[in-house]
Amino acid sequence: METAEDRLARARAALEGVQRRVGTTRDRWSAPTLPLAAVLDQLLPEGLRRGRVVAVEGSTALLLSLVAAASAAGSWTAVVGMPSLGVVAAARRGLDLDRLASVPHPGAQAPAVAGACVDGMDVVVLGPRLALSDADRRRLASRARERGAVILSAGPWPGAHVSLAVTGSRWHGLGAGDGRLRGRDLMVEVRGRQSGGTRLVTLPFDADAPARRPAQMPAVQVLGGAA
């Protein structure tokens, strides 16, 4: 049996929610976040918030790893305008390929396609060479805010909430004719729209742990050859 107090409390909570959303009160309402890999906490300390636009410049691998945890946890991902997306890299980073759709060449329909994806998907990755005007981008960003989708842009995005630009990367593992790529350090410049300043973050990336899986990549396999 519901008492009058309970109903009053529920009504107050509902009213507060509406006030927060329409901006009558001054407390800030924070959108729910999508899961993010622990390594990337230094890049996005507040997590991958729904409704945000994150621009990533200079590294597709970083872009994929931003999506990975959310995709593994059940989010749908659309990749628009990236015909050269590395599928194996996406799978290795932890994306669930069953919930990933790729629209490689949207062409002149890019605004409509991106809009449909923002409506239906949780994470939308937009490629660097899409036919989107600044007005289209603003419309997409506000649509994403309304629908709770995350837009990840490969390449600059005017007015992005967070911009990540890879300024340097150091690979190790290669020699002069021997070895193989083993891992790298990424230097990422983080610029937030609200935080104002610029942070430089160095992030170990792609490193495989030979202690954990020694049997997976023996040197013989690297050198092996004929089909």
Binding site: A90, H105, Q109, V113, G120, M121
Partner: peptide
């Protein structure tokens, strides 16, 4: 609900771009 929404969005894109416009990827 989320799955149905995603399927509908992709079908709409497929309606815009044709059959090969939207690709499912696998390893």
């Amino acid at each position: 609900g989320a799955d149905a929404r995603a399927h509908r969005a992709l079908e709409r894109v497929q309606g815009l771009l044709g059959l090969e416009g939207v690709l499912a990827v696998a390893e």
